[in-house]
Simulated assay, not measured.
Amino acid sequence: MERVNAMILSRTGSDVTMIPEVANHLISSGGKRLRPMLTLAMADLCGYQGEGQVKLAASVEFMHTATLLHDDVVDESDMRRGKLAARMLWGNEASVLVGDFLLGQAFKMMVEVGSLRALDILSTAAAVIAEGEVLQLSVAKNTETTEDEYLSVIRGKTAELFAAACEVGPVIAGSSKANEAACRSYGLNLGIAFQLIDDALDYGGVAAKLGKNTGDDFREGKITLPVVLSFRRGSSEERAFWKRTLQDGAIEDGDLEQAQTLMRKHKALEDTIERARHYAKMAKDALGLFPASPMKQALNDAVDFCIARAH
C-alpha cells in the first residue's frame, strides 16, 4: 500500500496547480483505501509475482475518487470524509473536471500494465458505475422504488468497482477462470454488503464515523433500503410522511427523528443490516475454493470489518 500511495501521489501531479490541489484534498483525507487493498490482496492470493498490481490498485483508487468528486456535485453534498467537499472549496466545475483527469490517469496506468483483459474489466466497470449513477437519478425521490430496483442501483454504483478491483488480481496472475469468477463474486457481494451498511449508518450512525452528516441521504431525498422497507411496511399515513419529505422535499424540523422512529418501528435498519450479513456470507463462501492462508484470512476479516461498522 505504501507503493500504491506513492503512485497515487505521483500521478496526481500536473502543471495546472488546481488539479493536484483538488485531487489531494480528497485523496489525502483518510479514505479507507479498501478497493486498492482488495486488488493487492487478490493478486497475492492468486500467487502473482509481478509489479502490475500496484498500478491497477492505484487505477482503482483513482476511479473511486473520480466518482466521489462527481457524486458530490450530483448530490450537492457539503461534506466528504469529515471535511468540506471539494466542490464547496473549488466549485462544481473544478470537481467534475478533476474527476475526469483522474479517470484519464487511471486508464493510462491500466494501459501501462499491458493486460488487455484487466483494461477490459476496469473500463467496463467505469461504464457500469455511470449506468448505476444514472439509474439512481431515475429512481431518486421515488418512494415506490422496489427492493430489486434499489439493489440494481447499488450493484452498479458501488458493488461493480469492488468486483472489478477483485477480478483484476487473478487476471494478471494468469489464474484459472474459476478463480477469477470466485474473486469477482467475493468483490460484488462485499460491495453490496458495504453499501447496505452505509445506508443503515446514515440513519443510525455517528457523524464522526460516517465522515458525513447523519441524515444526509434523507435531506438529499435518496431512496435507500431502510426507506424502501419502512415505506412498504408503513400505514398510509406513514407513506404520506415519506412522500412529503423525500418526494416533495418538504422537510421540517423533527422530520429526521420521525424517519428514524418509523425505521425502528418497522425494524428497517435491523433488516438492512441482516441483508448485508447475507451478502457478506456469500462473499466469504466465494473464497471457499482457495486453500487456507493468511491472505484468505485477511480477506475474510475485511468482510467482518464491513459489517462491524454498523455497531
Results as ranks from 00 to 15, higher is better:
residue 298 A to M: 13
residue 116 L to A: 15
residue 200 A to M: 05
residue 1 M to E: 14
residue 125 A to N: 07
residue 78 D to G: 13
residue 108 K to I: 06
residue 110 M to A: 13
residue 193 A to W: 02
residue 29 S to D: 01
residue 23 A to S: 02
residue 289 L to G: 15
residue 94 A to C: 01
residue 202 D to I: 06
residue 260 Q to D: 02
residue 124 T to W: 12
residue 155 R to P: 00
residue 7 M to N: 12
residue 45 L to D: 04
residue 209 K to H: 13
residue 33 R to N: 06
residue 173 A to C: 11
residue 6 A to N: 12
residue 153 V to F: 01
residue 292 A to K: 11
residue 276 A to N: 04
residue 182 A to C: 09
residue 155 R to H: 10
residue 285 D to C: 06
residue 229 L to R: 10
residue 215 G to C: 07
residue 293 S to T: 14
residue 276 A to S: 08
residue 216 D to Q: 15
residue 255 D to P: 03
residue 96 V to T: 13
residue 254 G to V: 09
residue 171 V to A: 04
residue 72 D to L: 05
residue 287 L to C: 03
residue 96 V to K: 05
residue 52 G to D: 08
residue 143 T to M: 05
residue 275 R to L: 14
residue 15 D to H: 05
residue 160 E to L: 01
residue 53 Q to Y: 11
residue 128 V to T: 13
residue 204 G to T: 10
residue 65 T to G: 04
residue 305 F to H: 11
residue 247 Q to I: 01
residue 30 G to D: 06
residue 49 Q to C: 08
residue 133 E to N: 03
residue 293 S to W: 12
residue 301 D to M: 14
residue 263 M to G: 03
residue 56 L to I: 15
residue 73 V to Y: 02
residue 79 M to A: 06
residue 74 V to E: 07
residue 50 G to R: 11
residue 22 V to W: 00
residue 40 L to E: 03
residue 76 E to Q: 12
residue 93 E to C: 00
residue 212 K to A: 02
residue 60 V to A: 07
residue 241 F to L: 03
residue 7 M to P: 00
residue 55 K to L: 14
residue 205 G to I: 08
residue 47 G to D: 08
residue 38 L to P: 01
residue 51 E to V: 13
residue 136 Q to E: 15
residue 251 I to E: 08
residue 271 D to M: 12
residue 159 A to D: 02
residue 212 K to D: 01
residue 265 K to R: 15
residue 266 H to R: 11
residue 134 V to A: 15
residue 237 E to M: 06
residue 109 M to A: 13
